[in-house]
Design a protein around this nucleic acid. Sequence first.
DNA 1: CCTTGAACTCAAGTTCACTTGAACTTCAAT
DNA 2: ATTGAAGTTCAAGTGAACTTGAGTTCAAGG
Lengths: 153, 153
Amino acid sequence: MDSRDLLPIGEVVRRSGFAASALRFYEAEGLIHATRSPGGQRLFERSTLRRLAFIRAASNVGLRLEEIRAELAHLPSNRTPTRADWQRVSRHWRGRLDEQIAALERLRDGLDSCIGCGCLSLQRCRLTNPDDVVAGIDEEPGAKLLPRALRPL
Amino acid sequence: MDSRDLLPIGEVVRRSGFAASALRFYEAEGLIHATRSPGGQRLFERSTLRRLAFIRAASNVGLRLEEIRAELAHLPSNRTPTRADWQRVSRHWRGRLDEQIAALERLRDGLDSCIGCGCLSLQRCRLTNPDDVVAGIDEEPGAKLLPRALRPL
DNA sequence: CCTTGAACTCAAGTTCACTTGAACTTCAAT
DNA sequence: ATTGAAGTTCAAGTGAACTTGAGTTCAAGG
């Protein structure tokens, strides 16, 4: 663990694109880790850059930090993650991506089948009941117009 | 405009799935409109249900209320929107959906091409530079690891 | 030594989209 | 007339993900 492998926060800011405040926040939240210089300044390992790449990607897919933290927890803490480690995490992560795409496509297809009549029901296009889109779709409490799952939680 | 066509808030809650507090909030924000009973209670027109269906759908696609309000502003205010009115708005709205799907697919494909090596670069998989994912991707300020556009704004 | 830029801490602020709570009022039915 | 459910207002709170600000310290060069 040569000290040349340890990056000060400014370096990580330039190379990751995250703001310093975000990095401090992530450290406080336990998503990344930093050692300290004798004077108390943060020093990040290079592998942190990959962690940050993962964080950005995952958050773009809609994972919340809490979930990302959970995913990252599957990485080994005692050694620098290997390719295989990242592959395992990424595969898990990919399922979420597929889900999101599928949900959006369902929504789009619903819109396609509905755009002709303009009723916006997206679930049941009832031309016989053009003024009341939602009623009768689902009598159960908690009935929702659209498939949720597009917005995590 | 027969009074039987005017729905009290509880009715709208049941039929739309939105909480009463959300409906009040939307009214205050100008996304929906309500007349009042002599005693001051809200009375919604039936067409409000369709507006609400649109709001839910749009917000599932990731539009923020501000944007939704802008879209809804394209509907006529002097008369009940027709099918054609809704079609115009929906078509506009669909583009956003397509964009979102495309962005997610790009991300997924990037992940696919990268999962084999585990490097998580998602843009350039440099096996020659396995410890530094982000450096060198883009020297310009503001360089971002991933295509944004997944998160609105 | 002195300055300058980069980094530090800690509390508080921001935005979005609502929800919650307190303290009433109105409506519909008996 | 009474009562209980449903509705009202307004201010304040929530949670996610950071950012901002104030005031302080560190590290390197001249």
